[in-house]
């Protein structure tokens, strides 16, 4: 059974078609990259997968649960991280993680927090208010929140946006390690092509709400006869070049 199965997913706001009948799936343990320019429909797709937004049409099944009818069963085994959604700034890091530990019904919360603090180098930050952290520290805390329930499906919206290369690399390493150890499925929306090339087994290229191309990073590089994913991205975004026929 696929961890993620999206079929003909559509979202329409009045006359604007934000997501246009997209279909994709992800097996357990895969990392799927969701690429596209601003307004391509990536965040809308993720919001629908999280149940924040109701689709106009189509079906989303996550871990076998239909998100239209049984979303809470799936949400308990999922998690999400985005630099655009914050954690309460006046609570300490430990308090924030404790709140989400309760919300996700994590047993042995303090032990789990200690594990995450060890894995993500958060020990020195646990008693500091979340609002006083640097961007890199906030990202690590957001990641700890996203891993608090040991999710089977992790949705990440630009997880390394605004991070310096060192911190970005550490975050990618943590994510890869968690995925490899837990068998978690990751859906990654990112503008960082190097990140996508490194982490993703499969990439979905979105444009104007549709999936216009898909494949592994290697397949896409070959198809567009390019050296790196950034050029593939630009080719698709600017209609510069048709893919090389297989």
């Amino acid at each position: 059974m696929d961890a993620i199965a999206v079929t003909n997913l559509t979202k329409r706001y009045d006359k604007v078609l934000a997501v246009d009948a997209i279909t994709f799936s992800a097996p357990p343990g895969a990392t799927i990259g969701l690429l596209g320019g601003n307004g391509a429909g990536k965040t809308t797709t993720i919001a629908m997968m999280l149940g924040l937004l109701l689709p106009t049409a189509g079906e989303i099944r996550i871990l076998g649960h239909d998100m239209a009818r049984d979303r809470f069963a799936a949400l308990a085994r999922m998690n999400f991280s985005s630099p655009y959604i914050a954690l309460p700034s006046r609570l300490t890091v430990a308090e924030n993680l404790r709140v989400y530990g309760h919300l996700y019904n994590v047993h042995g919360i303090d032990r789990r927090i200690a594990e995450l603090a060890d894995e993500l180098d958060l020990e020195d930050l646990l008693d500091r208010p979340a609002g006083q952290l640097s961007a890199g520290q906030k990202t690590r805390v957001a990641l700890a929140k996203a891993l608090i329930n040991k999710p089977d499906v992790l949705l990440l919206d630009e997880p390394t946006a605004s991070l310096d290369p060192d911190t970005g690399d550490r975050v990618r390493t943590w994510l890869e390690r968690y995925r490899d150890q837990s068998g978690c499925t990751i859906l990654l929306a990112s503008h960082n092509m190097a990140e996508v090339e490194r982490m993703c087994s499969h990439v979905l290229m979105m444009k104007q709400g549709r999936i216009v191309d898909r494949g592994s990073p290697r397949e896409l590089l070959e198809r567009y006869a390019r050296e790196d994913m950034e050029d593939v991205f630009l080719d698709i975004a600017r209609n510069r070049q048709n893919p090389v026929p297989a």
Binding site: R77, H107, G108, E115, K150, P151, D152, Q181, S182
Partner: peptide, 22 residues
């Protein structure tokens, strides 16, 4: 980094399946 621990079923923290109470 320490390996992710696997807890007993009674404690409900097995990474892949044990988050939903049901």
């Amino acid at each position: 980094m320490a390996p992710l621990p696997v807890s007993s079923p009674t404690t409900c923290v097995i990474p892949t399946t044990c988050v939903i109470p049901t």
